[in-house]
Amino acid sequence: MATIGLAAMLEALHPRDAVELAVYAQERGFGGVMATDRYQPWTARQGQAGFVWNVLGALGERTEGDLGPVAVPGSRMHPAVLAQASATLAAMNPGRHWLGVASGDAVDEHVTGDYWPEAPGRIARLFEAVDLIRKLFAAPAGRDVRFAGQHFRLEATRLWTAPETAPQVLVATGGPVTARRAGRQADGLITMAAPPERLEVLLDRFGAGAREAGKDPDAMPKVVQVPVSWAPDATRAQEQLLANPPIGAARLPRSDLRSPHDVAAVARLLRPDDFAGRVLVSDDLGEHRAHLQRLLDLGFDRVYVHDAGPDPRAWIDAYASDVLPHLTA
């Protein structure tokens, strides 16, 4: 069964509001929650950056669906610490938690003052972290793990609190080269909604990498985050997209921007074309159904949606009545 869940935008939601919204969404048919580990919001106007692990811990007690964070292993969060956080969440919520990892953006990761690597260095660091995390997850009970890599070191230790079944480790990427490597080294893939032809290439490369490692790509989780802008009329849907743009989905050189004020300055230049093919903007819920169905038909089995509008409950209600019941996995 596919999951249609809520992407909780912690950069714009107070943690209590994020939890209550996820509960509201579950009561209306959404199946899980995805959230990104942010240290700062994209823009100061968004105004929030709650710690994802605290929020997911609360959601574990209030909801029943998937719990999927996307975190960045690096100087802010050593992969051993991410492994501990993930193992604890999985131990408390058996069968519900998957761990997403990404190469990150400077707006969150520069805060410790360490060197911010170029893109190739970030990718190399990411996959080294995947290896370290999976070694900790896979270690037999009572057995210590050591690790010495180019980017990370781990002295002899273990996960003292571990779940019966280790969380799957999913790599977030939008590039075919990294997707192929994710297929080889990780348990699954995360990406952002994009034109179908681009997603087809991404999934094809992911599958090729999985088969190179002797794995079945059809059995591996494939997650897509889907930003939309819905309103009862088309003009409002377009206006709210630009009023509260989903920065992660925009054609915007953002990876090296270090301040929410810098991101906001660049975001003021965004136009509707900068979201073309990446964000569905429509008042027609039939178009929203077709958009999500295409992603399911491509092979994504976990689809997490968020809306740019100011009233998320109205959007959730609209999806609950006219979108979710008509989707087929």
Rank of each mutant, 00 (worst) to 15 (best):
G183H: 03
H110R: 10
A210D: 11
L126P: 07
Y304W: 09
T63K: 04
E212W: 07
M1D: 09
R184V: 04
D284V: 01
D256E: 14
E27Y: 00
G209W: 10
F300M: 00
V228W: 10
G207M: 01
T178V: 14
T165C: 05
R313F: 06
L252E: 03
V107F: 02
T191C: 01
K135L: 15
H78V: 01
M192R: 01
L170M: 14
G183A: 02
N244F: 13
D131P: 05
F147D: 09
V263M: 00
V145S: 11
V130Q: 02
D322F: 09
E287M: 07
P176T: 12
Q185A: 10
A276S: 14
W116F: 08
G100Q: 07
L298C: 01
H151Q: 05
G95L: 03
H110V: 13
A18V: 12
A102W: 03
R143N: 13
L202I: 13
T178I: 11
R181W: 08
A7C: 09
M1V: 10
P253H: 00
R125I: 08
G248D: 07
P117T: 09
N93W: 06
D187E: 05
A25D: 07
A91V: 06
H291Q: 08
F275P: 03
L189V: 01
A318T: 14
P69H: 02
A25Y: 02
R181L: 10
A210R: 11
V81K: 14
S103T: 13
A179Q: 05
E128H: 03
L285N: 13
L126S: 00
F51I: 07
Y39L: 15
A194V: 04
R181N: 02
D131M: 09
V226E: 11
A102R: 02
Q48L: 12
A119D: 13
T3A: 09
H14A: 15
T88D: 00
L203R: 11
Q48F: 15
G142M: 05
